[in-house]
Every structure is written in structure tokens, then in C-alpha cells.
């Protein structure tokens, strides 16, 4: 099971230049909007034609600009789920699913469709039209329709972007259960770190049309190397390092181990407020206090010029303008390129 992509495509001022080689069952392309994630998916599906490069799926060449190969989307055996699910509005749920059964003859389609409706718990809404069912049901139908083609690879474009967070959570679970039954590979595009962490085994970060290597998700979460990876790992404090090794947060960092580092990143929960003895200890003032539903954060500032630092604390007795000593262990500091 492997997808290999090495393509370039120019669209106006934007140039996409991605190199992706996957190995695990589910891979995420993580990046902000406008980074080129969706274009990459469309190139892999065959909807857009790259300017040059190669796309290979399980030893089958789908696109090769040198050999002038460009397999049409109909024959790529790749499922594609766009953001809005793209259910066909003039067809009911069964008819939509039957569209995914083109490989089979007309007689088989009806019974295969019934099997799928049963398997994914859609029997009750089989006769309804897309505008008559809920967002979650629409997604289940779209996924069922894509799985009906028995694809080798399934492409997801921001499946939850338009949904509110409660529904998102529920759908995430539904999706996980449905995808467990799928043997193919999944490539998933997202700008939401929770989605990526929940659904994917490996991840590749894409920024301004170029990407990092595909890495196991755990490796990125344990040791982020770029700003995007730090965002993915949920690190709140990211600051620049000046030439004199002074970080934006107002403490001196030791850049001996990673001399090329341009940024430092510190998790809010690895900063200690109890004055314990660490390699970095510095004085700050509390400028604000945030009480989240069940968490408690303080926002600290070392001096007038320095950047705010978000610190997690269990101590509920802090007050604004209070002076506080922060300590950070050197192993809790991430150096980013």
C-alpha cells in the first residue's frame, strides 16, 4: 500500500511543488487554507492535471508527464470526498449510492446497494433526497457512495470544516467506525489539529505549496521541527529567536544543539510556576488570567518588549499584576526552523 506523488503545478501566482510518499494506512496533509492541500488532492484524483511530475499508486502509474500518461479520474480507482460532500441533489440516497457501483452490471447494482444501505445504517433514509437529510447523514451517504467503488485510495477534503464542534465530534467517531471497515489507504486534508490527531497515523505538513516529509504522527507530536508542526502538536507559545539568542519571550536560549533554529516553542503546561530550579528561570508579571471550562491559564510578560506567554497552572489564587518566577526545563524547549 503506497502512494507516491511528485508534482508541480502553477495556478496564477501560486506554485505547488509537492513530494509525498506514504506508507501507513492513513496520512494527513496538514496546513492552513491556501497552502495547496486541496489542489494536491484534485491532482491525485485526476480532476486537475499537474504541469509536470509523477503520481504512482500501488505500482500503477496514474500520471507521468515524461511518458505522457494521464489516466482519467474514472479509471484511477480513487475515491474523492470534497468539503461539501457533493451528493447529487436530483437523486435520492439509493440513486446516489448506485452511482458508485458503475463497475457492476445493472442487475447486481440494486442488491449491492441494499447491502451497503444495511451495512452503513442508511436503510431508513434510502428514498430521501440530500436536502431532506442531516449533515451527518449526508456525510455517511457520501462516504458510502465513495466506498461502493472499492477504491484503493480515499481522498478526504476537510470533511468537518463546515460543521459545528459538537456535530464534528460525533461525526469523527462515525467516520472512524466506517473507515475501520475499509482496507484501502486514506489521504486526508485538514487545517484542524484535533481531526488530524484523531484520524491519522502519519502526517505531512504543507506550507505555501511545498511540504515536509511524511512522518509518523507521534514523531511530530513529540518533536516538532517547524511552526506548522508545532501548531499541529498544540503548542501555544511560539516565539522568534534574535541574533543574541534572546527569545521573544524575554529569556536567553541555548542554541548550541540546534544552531539553525529561528523559533522556540514551549507547551503551556511545561512551564513551571513553583519556582523550581531549572536551566531557565526568569521573572515575569501576570497581565491576564483565563479561566477555561476546566483549565486555568495565566498570561505572563517578562518586560514591555517581550511577547505574551501562556502558562497553565493549577493555582487558582494568582492575580493580575502579580510578579511570578517561571522556570522551564531545557528538554521542554523545542527549536524550530
Amino acid at each position: 500500500m503506497a502512494l507516491y506523488v511528485d508534482i508541480t503545478k502553477k495556478l496564477g501566482n501560486f506554485t505547488l511543488n509537492v513530494k509525498i510518499a506514504t506508507g501507513s494506512k492513513s496520512t494527513a496533509l496538514f496546513g492552513v487554507s491556501g497552502s495547496g492541500k486541496s489542489i494536491t488532492l484534485k491532482c491525485i484524483a485526476g480532476i486537475l492535471k499537474p504541469d509536470s511530475g509523477r503520481i504512482i499508486l500501488n505500482d500503477r502509474i496514474l500520471f507521468d508527464s515524461d511518458k505522457k500518461i494521464n489516466i482519467p479520474p474514472q479509471e484511477r480507482n480513487i475515491g474523492y470526498l470534497p468539503q461539501n460532500f457533493a451528493l447529487f441533489p436530483d437523486m435520492n440516497v439509493s440513486e446516489n449510492i448506485i452511482c458508485g457501483l458503475q463497475k457492476h452490471n445493472r442487475k447486481e447494482r440494486k442488491s449491492l446497494c441494499n447491502d451497503l444501505l444495511n451495512r452503513f445504517d442508511l436503510y431508513e433514509i434510502a428514498h430521501l433526497y440530500p436536502h431532506q437529510i442531516s449533515g451527518g447523514q449526508q456525510q455517511r451517504v457520501a462516504l458510502t457512495r465513495a466506498l461502493a467503488t472499492e477504491p484503493e485510495l480515499l481522498l478526504f477534503d476537510e470533511p468537518f470544516s463546515s460543521l459545528d464542534s459538537l456535530l464534528k465530534q460525533q461525526l469523527g467517531l462515525d467516520l472512524l467506525i466506517m473507515l475501520k471497515k475499509f482496507d484501502g489507504e486514506i489521504l486526508f486534508v485538514s487545517h484542524d489539529k484535533d481531526e488530524v490527531c484523531k484520524l491519522c497515523e502519519s502526517v505531512c505538513v504543507i506550507e505555501n505549496g511545498t511540504n515536509t516529509n511524511v512522518k509518523p504522527l507521534d514523531a511530530v507530536l513529540d518533536c516538532p521541527k517547524t511552526i506548522s508542526e508545532a501548531l499541529l502538536a498544540g503548542i501555544d507559545n511560539i516565539g522568534k529567536i534574535s541574533d543574541s539568542n534572546l527569545s521573544e519571550f524575554g529569556f536567553i536560549v541555548d542554541t548550541e544543539k540546534s544552531p539553525n533554529a529561528k523559533y522556540v516553542a514551549i507547551k503551556s503546561d511545561s512551564i513551571k510556576t513553583d519556582g523550581s530550579d531549572c536551566s531557565i528561570v526568569f521573572e515575569t508579571v501576570i497581565v491576564d488570567i483565563i479561566r477555561d471550562s476546566n483549565k486555568h491559564y495565566i498570561i505572563c510578560k517578562a518586560n514591555d518588549k517581550s511577547k505574551h506567554l501562556l502558562v497553565f497552572t493549577n493555582d487558582l489564587n494568582h492575580c493580575i499584576n502579580e510578579k511570578i518566577t517561571l522556570s522551564i526545563d531545557s528538554k521542554d524547549i523545542y527549536y524550530l526552523k
Binding site: K42, A45, G46, Q74, N84, A86, C99, Q102, K103, A146
Partner: peptide
């Protein structure tokens, strides 16, 4: 016409 409909239809194998 929403072109994602025709894009998706192509990946489903529709002519």
C-alpha cells in the same frame, strides 16, 4: 452548476 458535483462524479466512474 457546482463543479465539485461533476468532479466527484468522475471519480465514481461516471462517463
Amino acid at each position: 452548476f457546482d463543479t465539485t458535483l461533476s468532479d466527484t462524479a468522475m471519480t465514481l466512474g461516471l462517463s
